[in-house]
């Protein structure tokens, strides 16, 4: 197939073929990470702007390393250093980035749809690094990549996504990607954070973690975001751990080859037991490494096509 997108806004708009193509391309870039010189000239002369209106050290760093390995020049702009907080609109800020001839803009934003808003108005490539509770496509791609690397394929697997689904862009992008590649998806969490409405997307919703432990091929634990939870969503961390935490006891009931994933940062002892997070089934650090390869692939494909 031929890659024809200048932007990566979400997984929902991608075909299964495009997702596979991205993962295959990421394979090639993963090899670059093993070289003595981990840098290729693919995007030499291109300028990438990491535009993080909502702070995130982890994703920003990953994109930055990926871009540097592709020989692009990288500028980081965060909300605190941007004029957005001085009342400039997103459109005006973006137009200024374009006037600087930014070839790629990696956008993290608290509003769903902000990357699409930019992409419709700019010639630059726009890569969504997480928008509101909407999508986080590169996180889903690196999750799919990690699953495929271990299981050979994604089709036919049973993947449980556990935690705060309602406010999670990681969950949405994963749901879209997993379903497109033929996995079976179960969402697990409190009824306030995993509304039944999600079943219309083609997944199963349950509020009992015990129901998925023995059949899951992958458990993907999402961070419980203390700061975001209004107190009415669940009574407290203690009760959350009791009902939905992947404790040692629950860990024993997982299939021996079940992968434990987490997009980070981890709350040890909340959504996952500390030892399980570091255990043999955990692929959490691999996810981070694979994130580089996946982001290199995305930047190469979106930034490399003639516009």
């Amino acid at each position: 197939m031929r890659w024809q997108r200048k932007d990566l806004l979400g997984i929902r708009e991608l075909s299964a073929e495009e997702i596979i193509f991205l993962l295959d391309t990421a394979d090639a870039f993963k090899e670059v990470g093993t070289r003595e010189i981990k840098k290729v000239p693919a995007l030499r002369g291109k300028t990438l702007v990491n535009f993080f209106v909502e702070p995130s050290t982890r994703t920003r760093t990953s994109f930055e390393i990926a871009a540097i390995r592709l020989s692009a020049d990288v500028i980081n702009i965060s909300a605190s250093s941007s004029s957005l907080i001085k009342g400039e609109t997103l459109k005006d800020t973006a137009k200024i980035l374009e006037a600087y001839h930014a070839d790629l803009i990696v956008l993290r934003h608290s509003s769903s749809g902000a990357p699409q808003f930019l992409a419709e108005r700019l010639k630059s490539s726009v890569i969504n690094a997480g928008d509101g509770a909407h999508e986080h496509p590169t996180q889903a791609l690196l999750d799919l990549y990690t699953i495929r690397a271990h299981k050979g394929t994604v089709a036919g697997l049973h993947v449980a996504i556990i935690g705060d689904i309602l406010f999670s862009r990681v969950a949405r992008s994963n749901i879209f990607g997993l379903l497109k590649l033929g996995a079976r998806v179960t969402l697990v969490g409190p009824s306030t954070l995993v509304p039944r409405e999600f079943e219309k997307l083609g997944v199963t919703v349950t509020h009992k973690l015990d129901e998925v432990l023995e059949t899951a091929d992958v458990v993907n634990l999402l961070r419980i975001q203390h700061e975001r939870q209004r107190k009415e969503y669940f009574p407290g961390i203690g009760e959350y751990v009791r009902l939905f935490g992947l404790t040692k006891e629950r860990g024993k009931r997982l299939k021996p080859d079940c992968l434990i994933m987490h997009p980070g940062p981890i709350n040890r002892g909340v959504e996952i037991d500390s030892e399980l997070a570091d255990g043999t089934q955990s692929v959490i650090l691999e996810q981070v490494t694979n994130g580089l390869a996946v982001r290199m692939a995305v930047l190469y494909l979106c930034g490399g096509i003639a516009t």
Binding site: G132, E197, F198, L201
Partner: peptide, 11 residues
């Protein structure tokens, strides 16, 4: 509207 599209788009 809280429904299918708000769920899908995370709005």
């Amino acid at each position: 509207h809280e429904g299918y599209w708000s769920t899908l788009l995370g709005l």
